[in-house]
Design a binder for these strands. Structure first.
Length: 286
DNA sequence: GGCGCATGCTCAG
DNA sequence: TGAGCCTGCGCCC
């Protein structure tokens, strides 16, 4: 489930189990063997994430960059390593000791798993917009891009150069929560709306890190924000962790209108046509 | 057990 | 715009 919260949590888990230890590194599948041989037995200094990117830093400025893509997984287990199952591209094994248990981690199905130099890492980070999970991120950098673009805000939120770490679920949910039409051009959005949207993402992603999955429906806390939640069917609401994502054809929890879906740039949008009414520009109306 | 789909992104054309 | 990556899940049989 790789949106930003997944990577943030994964980096924490990897750091906890492997950081500051000499780690065995291998590539049972065979596609990362040369790099694995180079790293094997060296110290993994730290693991961190930025947006949907994962960085594991080894001694001597050697960094493994991982991007899970749509269906990559990096499963971390405590205990002695079991024989690899499936296409394990990268395996990390930490010995027990220092009061910490033995552990191993298997990476499968990732879009990217590569050894990169510090300059390359810098270039990669330069291409990313602010990450709502990183303290000190400057939302006005994202706003500069959004406010200058005629592209639909639904597309802009998913653009990692605008905002780092937002995927299809958070996009659909945050737009619903702020009653913004996903097809509305970025440059027609009000600055204050985007500011609220950003602060909401900060909170939603932090929830995702804490809970380990995406939950955007928090009935008591959200009453003020969503406004009409109290009119919704609380039983129905309580059964779903999200408002609109993948709920096409079902009734909106807030107003009862049928949730709609439409493809945008190869990804499915989900929105409520009544809570998020179609934006009409003044020029068009005149 | 098989099938289709998915929280993402890159590259060819 | 579409193929490719090649995992995991929910759904149907």
């Amino acid at each position: 489930m790789p949106e930003g919260h997944t990577l943030f949590r994964l980096a924490q888990t990897l750091h906890e189990h492997f950081a500051e230890r000499e780690v065995r590194v291998s590539s049972p599948q065979g596609r990362f063997v040369d790099a694995a041989a180079l790293l094997d037995g060296t110290v993994l200094e730290s693991a961190s994430s930025y947006g949907k990117h994962l960085f594991t830093d080894f001694a001597e400025d050697r960094c493994v960059h991982v991007h899970l893509g749509l269906y990559g997984t990096f499963a971390v287990h405590e205990g002695a390593a079991l024989p690899p199952v499936g296409q394990v591209r990268l395996r990390l094994v930490a010995p027990g000791g220092d009061g910490r248990p033995a552990a191993y981690g298997d990476l499968r199905g990732a879009t990217a798993c590569e050894l990169i130099a510090p300059e390359e890492r810098g270039r990669l980070l330069d291409r990313l917009g602010p990450d709502p999970l990183r303290p000190g991120s400057d939302w006005t950098r994202a706003w500069d891009r959004v406010s200058r673009s005629r592209a639909p805000v639904g597309g802009l939120l998913m653009d990692q150069a605008v905002l780092a770490g937002i995927g299809n679920v958070y996009r659909a949910e945050v737009l619903f929560r702020h009653r913004v039409d996903p097809l509305r051009p970025g440059n027609t959005l009000r600055r204050v709306t985007f500011e609220h949207l950003w602060h909401d993402l900060v909170e939603l992603l932090a929830d995702g890190v804490r809970v380990g999955r995406i939950v955007t429906v928090h009935p008591p806390r959200d009453d003020a924000l969503v406004g009409r939640v109290q009119q919704a069917d609380p039983q129905l609401l309580g059964r779903s962790p999200v408002f609109v994502y993948r709920r096409a054809g079902e009734p909106c929890f807030v107003c009862g209108a049928v949730v709609r879906t439409q493809e945008l740039a190869g990804r499915n949008l989900f929105w409520c046509p009544r809570c998020q009414p179609r934006f009409r520009s003044r020029a068009r109306a005149a």
